[in-house]
Computed example of a mutant assay.
Amino acid sequence: MKLKSLSLLLMLTLSSTSALAVTCPPNAGELPSWANSDRRSAITEFVTEITNPNSPNFVATKDRIAVFDNDGTLWSEQPMYYQLVFTLEQIKGLASKHPEWKTQTPFKWVLEDDVESLMKADHYALLELLQATHSGLTVEAFQQIVHSWVTKSKHQRFDRSYIDMTYQPMKEMLSYLKANGFTNYIVSGGGSDFMRAWTEQAYGIPAENVIGSSFGYDVVKVGADTVIVKNGELVSNNDKQEKVANIQRVIGKKPILAVGNSDGDHAMLQWSTSQNNPSMAMIVHHTDSDREWQYDRDSSIGRLDKALNESKQKDNWHLIDMKNDWCTVYGASSTSK
């Protein structure tokens, strides 16, 4: 299917911002975009308990670590991961400098809008596209390109910039946790340098608190200056068990709160709640086809199956029902800088 045809089909078959799926009374104070549900109560009760010095479940500020997946947890991820959308658009923008791409796969598929062939290809094809668009640049130059794209390019279904495809309830949760002494981290399969270009603006999470997939770096001398240039060597594919390993490697502490949306986060949720200290896991369940998308077990993107089963078996695992727990999905449009 052609990319333009796919986009048109999605726009025709999926409504955009229709009437709210749930009516929410205004909430005073924290988490105003959350309905008065068990999930909202789970967040506030957990935070109240672990921040109370007189509670047996008190956790010192230095140990209040919270980790969040990004794709499908803090911003949307349909109909394809947004870093992939960025990559495809970059390939088209660079095509004039690479006439050989017209006959070389996977570049040929991108230039011909052959999404079907691209989606059927193995992960090496995607890696080749990422290497072509994510390497050979200084980190600063790459992040300037990403920041411009994420703040100016528009999602075709919602006509919102990608930085505005972030979830308002989750941003409120991040702010609420920070106000109560938590240190928030993003632990995502997305690229570290891709996310670091905009996560502080979107979520208030600084670059040093972003853990993602990554390519290697070359330290290069340019005249009197030393610069870091991204190369095409895949160093870490930050997914599943690799998320746990990278949390230990970078943070060095087990989180007491972990939030994800798919089986790619399953190991992180299990590990974070496997401890004697108070802990909690939450899963964003995509149940709202009107205001966002509805998917779980059968989705090729953000598949939620095993973690969905486990969430129904553990008291300290909570399934966030997007349709019924969120009064709004996306907040007001931001002002691009």
Rank of each mutant, 00 (worst) to 15 (best):
G191H: 03
S192C: 01
N184E: 08
L174W: 08
Y176I: 02
P169L: 13
Q168C: 13
S188Q: 02
M173D: 02
A179N: 09
P169A: 02
N184Y: 01
F182S: 12
G189P: 13
K171H: 09
D164M: 04
Y162C: 15
S175H: 02
K178I: 06
G191C: 00
S161R: 12
G190S: 15
Q168D: 15
L177Q: 02
M170A: 05
Y162W: 07
Y167V: 10
P169K: 11
K178C: 05
N184A: 11
L177P: 06
T183S: 12
F182Y: 13
S192H: 07
E172P: 01
L177W: 05
G189E: 04
V187P: 02
T183W: 00
G191D: 09
S175G: 07
Q168W: 06
S175K: 12
S175Y: 00
M173H: 02
N184R: 01
G191Q: 08
T166G: 11
G189I: 07
G189L: 05
T166S: 15
T166P: 00
I186Q: 06
Y167F: 15
S192N: 04
F182R: 10
S161P: 14
T183V: 12
T166D: 13
G190I: 08
Y185I: 11
S192F: 08
M170V: 08
Y185A: 04
G189Y: 03
Y167R: 09
P169G: 06
A179M: 05
Q168P: 11
I163V: 15
D164V: 03
K178L: 00
Y176S: 04
S175N: 07
Y185E: 08
P169Q: 11
G181E: 15
N184K: 00
D164I: 02
M170D: 00
M165H: 04
T166K: 07
Y185S: 05
V187G: 01
I163S: 13
Y167T: 08
E172H: 01
S192R: 15
S175W: 00
S188H: 06
A179Q: 13
P169T: 06
T166Q: 13
Y185Q: 07
F182G: 08
D164R: 03
Q168H: 14
M170P: 00
G189F: 06
L174D: 03
Y162R: 12
P169C: 06
I163Y: 10
L177A: 01
M170W: 02
I186N: 06
Y185R: 10
S188T: 12
K178A: 15
T183Q: 05
I186E: 11
G181A: 12
T183D: 08
V187M: 03
G189V: 05
A179E: 14
K178F: 01
L174N: 09
S188R: 05
D164N: 13
T183N: 12
V187L: 03
G190H: 11
M165K: 05
N184M: 00
K171S: 14
S192Y: 10
Y167S: 14
